[in-house]
Design a protein around this nucleic acid. Structure first.
Length: 274
DNA sequence: CCGGAGACCTGATAGC
DNA sequence: TGCTATCAGGTCTCCG
């Protein structure tokens, strides 16, 4: 569900939790797919700590506290982090709840593809999930030379290349199609064929697509909502994703849908050069 | 080592 | 109405 703009939208709407002290933690005991065992023991370390800030690296959220521990959250496909009043009914598939006075910070995730963990802030980059991440597309920016260098010798298709979180952290299935359309590049083009110029255009396209989506509060095609439960508006502004048969906004050719590595992929057969 | 396919889950929706 | 098949924003693991 969430890619960089959605996770960043959640981060921004979570800031009212800063200053809140975690009085108690509850968890469903249900294992999350990415981590197999419930993080109950680790979560206990957060009791008594006060939330001091919320960061994002790629699609991961980090909730910092005044202690040495930081809460690490990945929303997977259907994960939600919400701030709700204690008395509000809990959503089905709620797996972790942090009591913060009159409010609660709640993590729910029907498909359980998400991840919740606790890391020691000083050693957070050693966490396997974070260790492999490349530069964050917005926070760090994309170094065109390094980006181009990573494409060298790669036979993978451009779409797989931009989805590789070790190359750039934050791109997911929707924005991969959107960025490649904006850069006028075919998703099936092999990555090693990226010239420095095209790498530069693609890097800029990723940033522009993200900034645009962020302004709209993210894309809510099905599940995504921010920490207040609000949907994003960006689904109304997508150029190609989920728009099979509709006219390309640049050249009016009907948009095509294909499946690449099992995932829906949208492109304009006319203005995205192979 | 690399790239692609399948697995992991539940729920919504389209089609019969 | 009700059943079945398909699809979904992510990542990991296995296989060739």
């Amino acid at each position: 569900m969430p890619e960089l703009p959605e996770v960043e939208t959640v981060r921004r709407t979570l800031t009212p939790a800063i200053g809140g002290t975690i009085a108690a933690v509850w968890d469903s005991g249900m294992g999350l797919h990415m981590q197999r065992k419930p993080p109950r023991a680790a979560l206990k370390k957060l009791v008594g700590a006060t939330i001091t800030g919320i960061r994002r690296i790629g699609k991961y959220l980090l909730v910092d506290t005044d202690g040495p521990s930081t809460l690490l959250v990945h929303l997977g496909m259907t994960g939600r982090l919400r701030i709700q009043a204690k008395g509000d009914p809990r959503a089905k598939h709620t797996h972790v709840v942090f009591a913060l006075g009159a409010r609660e910070l709640r993590f729910s995730d029907p498909r359980r593809f998400g991840q919740v963990d606790v890391v020691t802030r000083a050693k957070e980059r050693a966490h396997p999930a974070l260790a492999v991440l490349g530069p964050d597309a917005l926070t760090d920016g994309i170094d065109v030379t390094a980006f181009h260098a990573r494409a060298r010798g790669k036979k993978a298709m451009l779409k797989a290349f931009v989805l590789d979180q070790s190359v750039i952290a934050g791109v997911g299935n929707i924005y991969a199609s959107e960025a490649l359309w904006r850069a006028k590049l075919r998703p099936t083009t092999r990555a090693h064929r990226l010239t420095l110029d095209r790498a530069s255009v693609l890097a800029a396209a990723i940033r522009e697509v993200f900034e645009h989506a962020l302004e709209k509060g993210g894309t809510s095609l099905r599940d995504f909502v921010d920490a207040d439960g609000a949907e994003g508006e960006n689904a109304d502004y997508l150029w190609v994703y989920d728009r099979e048969g509709l006219p390309c906004p640049r050249c009016q050719t009907p948009i095509k849908r294909t499946v690449l590595q099992g995932r829906a992929t949208y492109f304009c057969p006319t203005c995205q050069t192979p």
